[in-house]
């Protein structure tokens, strides 16, 4: 464990937290705001972590909680595409498919999107996700199943093939 400071945490896990927030909101601007809140809060109220993994779990939980409590402000254009400005900002290209996936993320209830993100992207197992989210394993398992089912239903409706 190197450091408990918020600066260290940001340098180490800033992208992870941003991605978590994006995976739940589908909106880059909102994800940035959430990320800022998470780290500024840690900065003003330092925590003690046993390890980097512990720090990461705490940050993920913090970001997920904030996403759940997020209230949309007028300036947040939830359905705006991942536009050119953002492409230039992040120096990458977004495909039309990216936009579709982003919209699906933003439509998915947050209780599902958090579990799907932790499982598929962060590759935590059910037990670890349960620990991070403070839920029991059966609940997580059920959320994962239902989340996938819901995604599948949405995708089938749009004529896509869902692959797991």
């Amino acid at each position: 464990m190197n450091d408990n400071s918020a600066l260290y945490a940001f340098n180490r896990f800033g992208d992870t937290v941003l991605r978590t927030a994006f995976a739940m909101t589908g909106n880059y601007q909102e994800a940035e705001d959430i990320t800022q809140e998470v780290f500024l809060n840690l900065h003003s109220k330092p925590q003690e972590f046993e390890s980097d993994e512990h720090m990461k779990a705490w940050l993920l939980r913090s970001a997920i909680n904030r996403c759940k409590n997020l209230r949309k402000s007028a300036r947040m254009m939830r359905n705006s595409p991942l536009d050119e400005v953002l492409e230039n900002t992040l120096s990458c290209e977004f495909t039309p498919r990216d936009n579709e996936i982003r919209e699906m993320i933003s439509e998915l209830p947050k209780k599902y999107s958090s579990v799907i993100f932790l499982y598929y992207f962060e590759e935590y197992n059910i037990r670890e996700i349960a620990k991070i989210l403070g839920k029991n394993e059966n609940t997580v398992s059920s959320l994962l199943q239902r989340g996938r089912k819901k995604l599948k239903t949405e995708l089938e409706r749009e004529g896509y093939v869902y692959e797991t």
Binding site: F10, R19, A23, Q36, D98
Partner: peptide
């Protein structure tokens, strides 16, 4: 995963946060 991999802190955001922290 491909989409999420593209999502990273922008240089501007990163430097702003580092200053604040």
């Amino acid at each position: 995963n491909d989409l999420l991999c593209k999502i990273k802190c922008s240089d501007e955001f990163r430097s702003r946060m580092q200053e604040k922290l």
